[in-house]
Amino acid sequence: MEASEMNTSADDGSPGQAGYRRSARSPRGEARRRELLDRVTDDLAVNGLVDFSLRRAARAAGTTHKVLLYHFDGVDDLLKQAVLKLRDRRTVNAMAAATAGPPDRTLAARVRAMWPMLSGDDPGLRLLDQAIGLAMYDPGRYGWLGREASRLYLPSLVSLCPVSWSEQRKFEVAEMVLGTLRGFLVEWRTSRDAEGIAAGFEALVRALEREEAAASA
């Protein structure tokens, strides 16, 4: 299998086409790409971003870096795909917790339910919070880590808002929740101030309760 995967010529002869797009042209190629990505993602979740490289990813995937370059458009593309996969897992778990229970639960109750899914000590969660720091450290190269997080989480938070709210109000409150929770996550990873973060979270919940009360008045 690897001999064929190392053939990096595109079927249509077009140069510069991303490798994983070439491999996705067949069910077999796409299945192989997903398998490799799963292995790299699992390694990234356990070992973090430090010293991440194409060769480290190849060792984790049990293949060669040339094979990875057939399926992915370089180390940054591979990192992006793995981070997004971890974020998908986190979002699914958080939204499942937020939407469980009666449909008339308040937004404050939904945010309270999803918080443990975002703030646990699972290695994959720690890595996603490290990614925020990486985006701040080198925004030119890694700024997408923050932008993609917003694109992923913001629509989910908007969907949790009361249906009676205007779209503008939903967007404003969702932005407030996203920015506040993101700040809490960075604070937790850097200071481990559980008491202070818990107090801040309760203040956020009260702010959401007031927002909902004002909207229904």
Rank of each mutant, 00 (worst) to 15 (best):
W115I: 05
V158G: 12
P103N: 08
L125C: 05
A45V: 00
F171T: 11
Y137E: 10
L44N: 06
P155L: 07
L36Y: 15
W188F: 15
D77E: 13
P27K: 09
S53P: 06
K66W: 02
A10V: 00
R87F: 00
R90K: 10
L79Q: 04
V46P: 07
D73T: 01
P116D: 06
A149F: 11
F171W: 07
N47E: 11
R22Y: 02
W165R: 07
G13R: 10
S119T: 06
S26Q: 09
L86M: 12
L118M: 15
R56I: 02
I197W: 00
F72V: 03
L145S: 13
S166K: 04
D38C: 10
S191T: 12
A131T: 09
Y142R: 05
S166R: 06
R59G: 03
A57L: 12
A109I: 03
A109N: 06
G101T: 12
Q17R: 15
Y70T: 14
L128K: 03
E167C: 01
A199Q: 09
R169Q: 14
L127H: 08
G48A: 03
R55T: 11
V163H: 15
T99Y: 05
L160I: 04
S23R: 15
V111Y: 11
L78R: 01
W188M: 15
F184A: 04
P116N: 07
L134N: 09
G143L: 01
V111M: 13
L154V: 04
V205Y: 14
T106E: 02
A198L: 04
E195H: 13
S23V: 08
P27T: 10
E187K: 04
D88C: 05
D43Q: 06
Q168P: 02
D88W: 09
P162G: 03
R87K: 08
W165D: 04
G143K: 01
L69M: 07
V177M: 04
T64A: 08
P155T: 02
T64L: 02
Y20V: 13
L127R: 10
S9T: 04
P27Q: 04
A135C: 10
V177G: 12
A61F: 11
T190A: 13
E35M: 13
G200M: 02
A3T: 07
K170R: 14
R112W: 11
A198E: 06
L107W: 07
K80V: 00
V67W: 00
R126K: 14
T63L: 09
D43M: 09
A203P: 02
L145M: 15
Q81E: 15
C161G: 10
G200C: 02
L160E: 08
M176F: 02
E172F: 12
V163Q: 14
G133W: 10
L157M: 03
G29D: 06
D129Y: 11
Q81F: 01
A207C: 04
V67P: 10
R89L: 10
Q17N: 04
A203K: 12
R34P: 00
G19V: 00
G146W: 09
L157K: 01
G183D: 03
S119W: 03
L107E: 02
